Amino acid sequence: MSLSAFFNSTRGTAAKRVLAACVAIAALSGTAACGSAANTATSSTSSDSKISVIASINQWGSVARDLGGNKVDVTSIMTNTNVEAHEYEPTSSDIAKFTSAKVVVVNGADYDPWASKAASSTKATLVNAAETDGKKSGDNPHVWFSAAVRSSAADAITKAYEKAMPEQKSYFAGLNTEWKAKEQKLEATIKQSSSKLKGTNYAATESVAWYLADDLGMNDVTPSGYAQASANESEPSPADIKEYQEALATGNIKMLVFNSQEADSVTDQITSAAKKNNVPIVNLTEQMPKQYTDLLDWMNALVTSFANSIE
């Protein structure tokens, strides 16, 4: 069974993150009155020229920036690939950034519930990327890897901008067209690469790139015991790890997808077994690496890495 099959399991950490966000919001509300006049003046000044946009993660922040051009001011909260995204707890400073936002872009699918919670206390228009394509809590949350979600989220962001600045509707429509053209080039590259990768069996240390691999026509054959433990955010048993190592030795797994953002002693054992058995490893992270400022450029690089890993 694939990693993606287990994402309907309850995530205990999600509740903790929501609780942490609530505490931060409560702390913020206690101090808001003292600075309300200053905050109002700042918001009014910035809104006259640009739409204030907050994105929970940098990959959606890049899309929001591309679609808004010089009419938006975008701030991304999570930008560090050294942070475990599923464990992220926002600070009071993070939450405060939402107060002046006119548009908030979150990932959704229980990936960043703290951001949705923070946005709910404001008048900002909320764009939930996962929900734009019908993804919900319990589904694989790494939706920026999905061509369908990227496209539907882009349209939702453009609509939010048109609502905030209706006199610039044609400007935003033009940027949406430009972005869609670049996305279509990426999808053409994915289609071309799928002619080489379609039907390829792969396994993963975490189902981060499942949507991209699916778009490429690849088969997720991650051993079920390890897959279930990973989806439940629990430690795989010694038997699970052994099963994975043995699977890598059979030759059935043609590629290992490794989320280096959440490397630990367990993944060290898996990657070591892959190297021992000459299984190609594709390294990636959840957050967009610093060398990229555009989600689509990052996706193009990953598609190339997938294609080049297979001889």
Results as ranks from 00 to 15, higher is better:
284 L>W: 05
279 V>T: 11
260 S>T: 13
300 N>Y: 01
278 N>H: 13
200 T>H: 00
171 Y>L: 07
269 Q>P: 07
164 A>C: 06
224 S>W: 00
166 P>G: 07
298 W>Q: 10
169 K>A: 15
170 S>N: 14
172 F>G: 06
169 K>H: 13
311 E>F: 03
180 K>L: 04
268 D>T: 14
209 A>V: 10
258 F>W: 13
223 P>V: 04
207 S>H: 05
240 D>S: 15
275 K>H: 11
226 Y>W: 10
236 P>L: 03
186 L>G: 01
235 E>S: 14
192 Q>D: 12
254 K>C: 04
273 A>F: 07
226 Y>G: 13
212 L>M: 14
179 W>A: 07
267 T>R: 10
239 A>S: 14
246 E>I: 12
253 I>W: 04
281 I>D: 03
287 Q>C: 00
283 N>Y: 13
216 L>G: 01
254 K>G: 08
262 E>G: 01
233 E>C: 02
166 P>I: 04
308 N>C: 07
205 T>G: 04
184 Q>H: 07
309 S>K: 15
239 A>F: 06
255 M>T: 03
273 A>E: 05
244 Y>R: 06
297 D>E: 14
284 L>V: 03
307 A>C: 08
293 T>R: 09
193 S>N: 12
299 M>S: 11
192 Q>M: 01
234 S>F: 07
209 A>N: 07
266 V>E: 08
286 E>G: 07
269 Q>Y: 07
242 K>D: 15
216 L>H: 02
179 W>K: 00
189 T>Y: 01
259 N>A: 12
245 Q>N: 12
209 A>Y: 09
273 A>W: 03
242 K>M: 09
288 M>Q: 12
272 S>E: 10
265 S>D: 15
205 T>W: 00
307 A>Y: 06
294 D>V: 01
254 K>F: 07
304 T>G: 05
235 E>D: 13
195 S>E: 13
253 I>H: 06
245 Q>T: 05
222 T>P: 07
241 I>M: 08
256 L>Y: 06
250 T>G: 01
243 E>G: 02
217 G>T: 11
233 E>Y: 10
271 T>M: 05
229 A>W: 03
273 A>N: 04
205 T>C: 03
208 V>N: 11
295 L>V: 15
225 G>R: 06
172 F>C: 10
277 N>K: 12
296 L>H: 00
191 K>A: 15
266 V>Q: 11
303 V>P: 00
283 N>V: 10
217 G>D: 13
194 S>F: 02
171 Y>Q: 04
193 S>A: 15
262 E>Q: 13
292 Y>C: 00
231 A>E: 06
194 S>Y: 00
221 V>L: 12
242 K>N: 09
292 Y>S: 01
258 F>K: 11
220 D>A: 11
